[in-house]
Design a protein around this nucleic acid. Structure first.
Lengths: 214, 214, 214, 214
DNA sequence: AATGAATGAGTATTCATTCAT
DNA sequence: TATGAATGAATACTCATTCAT
């Protein structure tokens, strides 16, 4: 559940008898897209970095856009649903006694995941922000898999009286998500000192969420 | 203090004897950059939308990049510092009695501002996320003008005992900023139903911030 | 007869009620054409250097090409014929006793002239070499004014028996001209040490011409 | 040793696995550069003349300037040194008995070479005269390969007492080179009647050089 | 499967020239 | 007379994509 996303991507691509070269293209493209963005990366750069001929890229992916989608969508479409199913049910099983412990475990768990797959998330956020049509697709996937499950958990805590019932769960969910997303976003784009003692910060964020919801 | 940012941009550009056509280019470019991003917008599109010859763009702005900077930087460099000075001192003067009222007023005030200048902020966020060198510049400006002032306000409330002193003000600041930014970001990219009763939401966000800091 | 060619150009332009600005354009253009060549100089550069508006150039000269011709042709067409008439008749009157003294005086005299108008000759040679249609025009002017007169002098010396009669004067003329032109060309493009004791060199060239013709 | 320079260029380009199209570009560009000069030739013209797509030019040569250099420099840098070594040593071996026969053979030999590669020399001289940075590069190459060897030959004749020792060999060299260069230049730019009985003229030039140096 | 030469539409930018003021 | 904003064709160059080998 904690595996690097890049490993997942590689694993996925192996399923369909992926060649060595195809993988090299995927990796090179991922690195460049993360660094400079899809629109600022040329296929010739990717070919050079992957050490393949430019034609090879198109033999495997047809268009540059499909290459981008091959990086982002397999995970989002095939791995995100079962993964979030797994993650949330385990979180609830192990830490579901109090909202504090649940959100603390959730954030810590996802932070590990995020740290290992920073590159992937950079592409995801960059193109989500930049590319209108992509936005819709990703939004739906996140709503159905992530937001929905946070909402389920919150509703459960509301029923148990551990979170205020005077605010609709949807609003609490959105706010919680916003705070968590903001935390990750901040660490992706605004922070250069990677060495911050992160546990303090996570604890801080958890407290804010919980207090705000009590 | 509450004027539309686009008005500010127009006003600014008038200072330097701006022609009708120069403004049309600025507006067309702003719209297209907001919609599709700088890298996905061609100067010929801008020319067509502004109904000027392509050469006209370059007579006024020399390069496409300077056109982008002409949209973003005048405000960031010339208007942001005095504006944030004004906003924060007025907020503190009028609503500084309690952190609740201060943050509520701040968010409401900035939300109005943001609503009127959505296009501008879209460009800002898009290029901030997408364009490495731009990131640095903007980060510094925000740290010096916005983060610093939030920090000052929080320290003041800490001294008055209305906010916990057990957490360093810098961490509280960062968290508060993250939550507020996340709120705006959410409304820019994740929300399509504009008709949400926004006051509730703002109240909710304020409660979360305050409870988390008490 | 020894005046700088640039003075001639200025004088010429004054004849037709030339404005201050027109002259500034002529001078700026001459400098830039000499340095970088006509094809590599833009009218906006000229305007900037002359400190006039770009429109002003076209008001006075209509096209960039006419500006070039206004620099080169007035001298070639209006001043070259009487000037070469004067120069050759004076040379012959004062130094016509021997071919040695004639060619020595001619080269020295023209070398002074050339030194003062280096810029002008640079444009002339550059565009002569580079621009086909211009070549024809200039060739005719030189043949009619310069080559013809050298030929006359040589024929005179042949008649007096001071130069071999066994070679047609036209061939001697062309060879002499080639040597003299080569000398100037060398000094324009191949030499960086301006401080060479030039008299020696001129004497050397004269000796070679004379010995070759005896 | 007498091969056409254009053949040399073609041969050179074959070394590095040159395509048909690459050669067509080289030839079309050479023709146009010779005719109108580098600055007055557009890449679209070259593409049209070579009957290739404009992109093809850039795939092979990256920039227009590198295309020019691909025409001129391979010969200058790779073929000029061994070629001049060969030419001069053969000339001295076969005709080194007297300066007359040496210079006569040298000029005749180089005139054949020059006639076959007129186009190439036209580009060379045009850009040498027109383009400052190019001037330096070419000057050095000529000094090291051509001037130096003429100087060696002259010094040899001086030692044998067949050329005056009262003038430094450097000055004699420069003068001889100037005369020879002028002869070629004249035939490149000033002459339209190609049918001149050239042997007479060469003899004339040789006599002039030799007499001047005795 | 892999190559890389070839393409041509598209890009940002330059430029000589025009024209209303 | 002088300006300089405006033009749009032209320029060198890039790029995703195709295709013969």
């Amino acid at each position: 559940m904690n595996h690097s996303l890049m490993e997942e991507i590689v694993k996925y691509s192996k399923k369909t008898k992926t060649t060595d070269k195809k993988q090299r293209v995927l990796q090179a493209a991922a690195q460049l897209f993360a660094e400079k963005g899809y629109a600022n990366t040329s296929t010739s750069e990717i070919a050079k970095k992957a050490d393949v001929a430019e034609g090879t890229i198109f033999r495997h992916f047809q268009t540059k856009e499909k290459l981008l989608r091959s990086i982002l969508l397999p995970f989002l479409k095939e791995s995100l649903p079962p993964l979030s199913e797994d993650v949330f049910s385990e979180m609830l099983a192990s830490y579901g006694d109090s909202p504090e412990s649940f959100f603390r475990a959730l954030i810590k768990n996802r932070y590990e995941f995020f740290k290992e797959s920073k590159e992937y998330f950079q592409i995801l956020v960059k193109e989500f922000v930049y590319t209108e049509p992509f936005q819709q697709e990703v939004k739906v996937l996140f709503e159905q898999n992530v937001l929905k499950r946070i909402n389920d958990a919150i509703k459960r805590f509301q029923e148990k009286g551990e979170i205020t019932q005077s605010i609709p769960s949807e609003i609490l969910t959105r706010t919680a998500f916003t705070i968590i997303f903001g935390f990750f976003f901040t660490h992706m784009f605004l922070q250069n000192n990677e060495d911050t003692p992160i546990d303090n910060e996570i604890e801080q964020v958890v407290q804010i969420i919980i207090n705000g919801m009590k």
